[in-house]
């Protein structure tokens, strides 16, 4: 019995070492020109689907049959989805054809996936797949409108799709309390990490702009503004207004997102 345990332990260690060697040697092909090896593809596909199911199971789906809601979704779909996923009678744009994995045809998704799973994927995105998280790009009402439209999609011919009118008016943003933890997510979602080192955020170690470590203790931000929450929010929303020659671009940060980011950054001391 004891001997068997030793053997199993040794095999496990050997397995980990072999796996580490495989990874470090660079032998695995990360090119998007070819799909993953079949076993890898299936493992990732099952892991993705199980992960979505596990996380979406308690989501309460609102009524999705309302024509006005579907019309909103039609507009969001054309603005944000069709470029990569295509639409009935419309191919994805050229850049999107090179994705690995290829962006799903949402006619099939609408047919096969339950609404709550589609909502979860639209809202959260999928790591390493090219599917972005839309939570910070549209209000919840529009996320559901998009899902409502995707569920309707399989019933539309190409002509129906082309003829269908969208409602592009923006959804009203409700009032929200300031939430530093949401701010931490927003920092990831506005790609702050590609220029700044930010301790506390995984992968944020770029040296393009200054480190945001201890930002809560800083006296001056943007080179000349006193570091108050209101100034930080203003700078996050319109950096080029305060530093016209600066390399930091305006990222279209909303008031709510800027307030949450400023709250999280203010806690870093």
């Amino acid at each position: 019995m004891k001997k068997a345990l030793v053997v199993i332990g040794a095999l496990l260690v050997a397995g980990v070492v072999a796996m580490a060697g495989l990874i470090y040697s660079g032998v695995y092909d990360v090119s998007a020109l070819e799909q993953h090896l079949a076993p890898t593809y299936h493992v990732l596909d099952v892991a993705m689907k199980r992960s979505v199911k596990a996380r979406a199971k308690d989501i309460v789906v609102p009524p999705l049959e309302d024509a006005a809601l579907i019309a909103r979704g039609r507009a969001r779909f054309e603005e944000h989805c069709a470029q990569c996923h295509g639409a009935p009678g419309i191919a994805p744009q050229a850049f999107a054809l090179g994705f690995a994995p290829a962006a799903a045809n949402l006619v099939a998704t609408g047919e096969l996936w339950p609404a709550r799973d589609i909502y979860w994927v639209v809202r959260h995105g999928l790591k390493m797949s090219g599917m972005p998280a839309w939570e910070f790009r549209m209000p919840d009402e529009d996320l559901w409108a998009t899902v409502a439209f995707v569920k309707r999609l399989p019933k539309l011919s190409a002509a129906d799709y082309a003829a269908m009118k969208g409602d592009a008016s923006p959804a009203a943003e409700g009032a929200h309390p300031v939430d530093p933890e949401r701010g931490r997510l927003a920092i990831q979602q506005y790609s702050c990490v590609t220029c700044h080192t930010i301790p506390g955020i995984v992968g944020a170690n770029a040296p393009v702009g200054p480190s945001l470590a201890h930002l809560g203790a800083r006296k001056i931000i943007g080179g000349h503004l006193p570091n108050t929450p209101a100034n930080l929010v203003a700078f996050l929303r319109e950096p080029r207004k305060y530093k016209p020659d600066g390399a930091m671009p305006d990222l279209g940060v909303t008031e709510r997102d800027a307030r949450d980011m400023a709250a999280w950054l203010g806690l870093q001391r």
Binding site: C195, P207, V208, G209, P210, D245, A247
Partner: peptide, 8 residues
Amino acid sequence: ARTYIAGI
């Protein structure tokens, strides 16, 4: 290692 000076 920084890319920009004064952000500019």
